[in-house]
Structure formats: C-alpha cells, structure tokens
Design a protein around this nucleic acid. Structure first.
Length: 437
RNA sequence: GUGGAUGUAGCUUAGUUGGUUAAAGCGCCGGUUUGUGGCACCGGAGACCGUGGGUUCGAGUCCCAUCUUCCACCCCA
C-alpha cells in the first residue's frame, strides 16, 4: 500500500470492534475519579513550546528529543503535548481554578505525542487518563491519589499489578542526595556503562535504574535517598506509608524508582505489571510541589498521576479481564418489496424514538440476505414486512436467539419492543441474582 | 537514536533447489423454485506477493536500499 494511505508510524486506529471497550474503560475511570471529587478538565492538544520545555525539564529525554514542535503561521513555537500535567497546570493558573476553593481536583483523558521508536505499549500518539490535585500538602493526599489509581485498576479487573513507591525529597534534600550520588558513582566511572557515564552528569539518579549487571551491582551499594531526606520529607514519606497501610494498600518501597520528568518532588510511585513486556509501567505519578509557582502561579502544593490507556488495554487483554459486550441492534425490520420498505423505514424511526437501535435494509437485498445480515450483526428481534402484514396490520416479532415469536399490531411495535426488552432484562437480572447463568 | 526479527487477498497462513493464469481456510457477496437468519452444499469477487532498485532468458522465491510492524536498549504512560 502506498505510504500516503497508511497510518503514520506509531499511530493506531481503534475500530468499532474495540472502541466500545475503550469507551467503557474511560467512563469507568472518570466515574471512579468522581468518587474522589475529581472533575474532568479539557485542555488543548498543543501549547506554547515553553510550557513543556521549561516545566517538564530542559534536559529530560522527553524535551530533548521527543517533542513534536513546529512553528505556526503566526511565528509561534508550538508543541503537541507530550504529557498533560504541564498544560493542566497552565490552565488552572490562567483560569483562576487554584484561586478558588482548595484542594482543586481535576482529571482528564487525552492524546499525547512523543517522537519515539514505537514498540508494544509505546506509541507516538497515545492516550492518558490522569488526575491532578492542587493545594493539598498533607501526606493523606498522596495516599488518596494512589488509592484512586489502585481502585481504577482493580475495578477494571487488572490482576497481578504491583505498587512501587519512593520519595525523592524536596528540592533541597534531593540536591544533597544527587551530589552524594555523583561523588559515589564518580569513583566507578570506568566501570559504568556508556549511558551511565552520560547520566553521571545529566541525572545520576537514573544510574540507580540501569539494568546492566555491572551498573546495578555498583548501584546496589550506592547511598540511599532515605538517608538524605530532610526531617520534613522523612516525616511526610512515613505518613504516606502509614496512610497506605491503614487502607490495606500493599506497596513496595523501591529506592530505585526515579521519575524522568524534572518537576517531581517527595512522593513518586508506579504501578508496574509483568504481563505487558518492557513498557511495564501502567500508571506513574507523584507530587510536584514546586511546579505551580515555577509556572507563575501562587505557591501551591500539587500532585497527580498519569495512566497509559493503551497499556492498560494491553494489560486487560493479556490477563483476560472481562469487559461488557457492546450493545446490539434491538430490532431488524426486513422488507419484501418497495412498499414494505417504506413502512420499514417508518417503523424503524418510531422504535428509535423510543430509544432502541432499529435497522432495515439499505442495499436492496432479498429477504434471505436481510435476515442473514440481521443475524450477523446480532439483532435481538426481527420482523418481516410484506403485503400480508400491510394488509392485515399484524406482524410477527421474532426473537432471533430463542426463535420465540410474538404477534402484534404494526402500530404497537414500539411498545411491544419496549415491553419485550424490559421483560428480558428482568429475566436476565433474575437469572444473575438466582445464579441461573 | 542503537541492535535483532518480520512483511503473500479484509484476517490467518501455504508456496518445494528462482520456471507458465500465486493456493487454502475464515470473512465478504450471491444462489440452492421466488415469505424467514444460524447448518450444509454450490458459485463469485478479492493479492501488481510492503515499496523501489538490481542479478537473471525468467523472481513471491536471490542481492541492495527503503518503509511498516514486532522484540530489546534508551526513555516513559
């Protein structure tokens, strides 16, 4: 196929046979977030480049090599958002959201864009669900958003996912720690791998994360952040842990988790799965107390997380979590001739007015083909309309699954369908309550 | 950006040491005496074999390049 007719590298089409699952998952996430007081915010897909470059961090990989940046016709430097936090923070400052009642809680779903080499669980256009909470400095806030992330994952049926948490301290104690790390790793400079030598200057925290056996052996004996936390950060972290434990949330303290975006402070966390390959972080987040003031807002503590929707879907598929079926057509009206076809269209519109999906032939097909089609799309009921029906004013409604038939007047079809549907819903409700399947 | 693998109808694949009109299953469309779907049977449409070069009398099969997808690194969700 010609390249022009293909989706751009790293992008994905979601077709109707899957889109309903995404919609279900997204609605569930918004609903669950609402239980914690988070309300949806919608912000632009692109921002002034500086919104990201300054706040995500000038020398993070995301800013250095992954942004889709271009100049618009007015000469502005514009960037497609590589993540949502920076844009949301910009918005809540600009619109005075954080000048109102605090904490202010917002959540969102949206596409993000990063120019990376695609692989499973990593796309150039991907979607994130996330939440941000502004104005809450208490450790209970950290525990609360972790609880929310966990509840979302559990509600959707995710299994075998582990929570890792860490504290990377505030600006002050972190810089002490980074210096200590740099001193320590400098002694092993010649043993460290190439990338870790780069990291020694740029961000020694990342060396802790290196998978090379030599580096991880050296890293194992490196100074630990918890020894460098100031009293305030130390107390905060232990209270976060206490809150989590009190809520029965299992976690593992992993001093090696270090987020790659510059704005994080204190608590950072990840939900990691072993089922979806190398891109195993499904959800990641933490506190970013300095970002709001850095972006020109009033000094406001803040925290949040982002959850990769494609990775989550991958995980749900791999672990066989069950999602509800898509809604099916309720009534198919098959017609024998032109006159019946017109009547079929009218019946469909009446049934649709009652809120049920109703379809009829649009391809000029014969009766048999029409019914085959009704079967393929999984229509619940069908009727056949011909001379006989139009003359007698009576039709037979057939349940396509059971084969049961019900007779009624043509004019009563919408009522009859409503009736049958309600009865059927009642029966399946009884079945599920009584355990009849 | 680095390394490795893949690429044949909508989907899953077959295609023998390069040799005539590229094969099958599923799916799709139609039919099996004209008023009832699912099963069965019959028939049909649909692929310039990812793309572009090259080697050859001849290439889906060999070589090169390029793109896509996948796996790992990097990084992140």
């Amino acid at each position: 196929m010609a390249e022009i007719n293909r989706a751009v590298k790293g992008t994905n089409d979601i077709l109707p046979d899957k889109s309903y699952k995404y919609r279900f998952v997204e609605e569930k996430m918004l609903e669950t977030a609402a239980l914690y007081g988070f309300r949806e915010i919608r912000v632009p897909v692109f921002e002034h480049t500086e919104v990201f470059s300054r706040n995500v961090g000038e020398d993070t990989d995301v800013v250095q090599k992954e942004m889709y940046t271009f100049e618009d016709k007015g000469g502005r430097s514009i960037t497609l958002r590589p993540e949502l936090t920076a844009g949301v923070v910009r918005s809540v400052i600009e619109n005075g959201v954080i000048a109102g009642a605090l904490p202010a809680k917002v959540c969102y779903i949206g596409g993000c864009y990063r120019y990376e080499k695609p692989q499973a669980g990593r796309l150039r256009e991907f979607h994130q669900f996330g939440v941000e909470c502004f104005g809450a400095q208490c450790p209970s806030a950290d525990a609360e958003i972790i609880a929310l992330a966990r509840q979302i994952l559990l509600t959707l049926g995710v299994k075998d996912i582990s929570l890792k948490i860490n504290s990377i301290g505030c600006e002050k104690c972190r810089s002490d720690y980074v210096n200590a790390l740099r001193d320590y790793f400098s002694k092993y400079k010649s043993d460290l791998c190439g990338t870790c030598n780069d990291r020694l200057d740029r961000n020694p925290l990342r060396i802790l994360d290196c998978k090379s056996p030599v580096c991880s052996e050296i890293a194992a004996k490196a100074p630990v952040i918890t020894d460098y936390l100031c009293d305030d950060c130390k107390a905060h972290f232990s209270s976060v842990k206490e809150n989590l434990t009190a809520q029965g949330i299992l976690f593992e303290v992993d001093p090696h988790i270090v987020r790659g975006l510059d704005y994080y402070t204190k608590t950072v966390f990840e939900f990691v799965s072993g089922d979806i390959g190398a891109q195993s972080t499904v959800c990641g987040g933490g506190r970013y107390d300095g970002l709001v003031s850095k972006m020109g807002g009033k000094d406001t503590p803040a925290l949040g997380f982002g959850l990769g929707i494609e990775r989550l879907m991958l995980l749900l598929e791999k672990t066989g979590a069950t999602l509800p079926e898509d809604k099916k057509c309720v009534l198919y009206v098959a017609a024998m001739d032109d006159k019946s076809q017109i009547a079929a269209g009218k019946i469909c519109s009446l049934v649709r007015n009652e809120g049920y999906e109703a379809l009829c032939d649009l391809c000029g097909r014969g009766l048999k083909s029409q019914l085959k089609y009704a079967d393929k799309i999984g229509a619940k009921y069908s009727i056949v309309l011909g001379e006989n029906e139009l003359n007698s004013g009576k039709v037979v409604i057939k349940n396509m699954k059971t084969g049961n038939t019900h007779e009624c007047d043509i004019g009563d079809i919408p009522d009859k369908i409503t009736d049958l549907n309600l009865k059927e819903a009642l029966v399946s409700l009884e079945d599920s309550v009584l355990g009849n399947g």
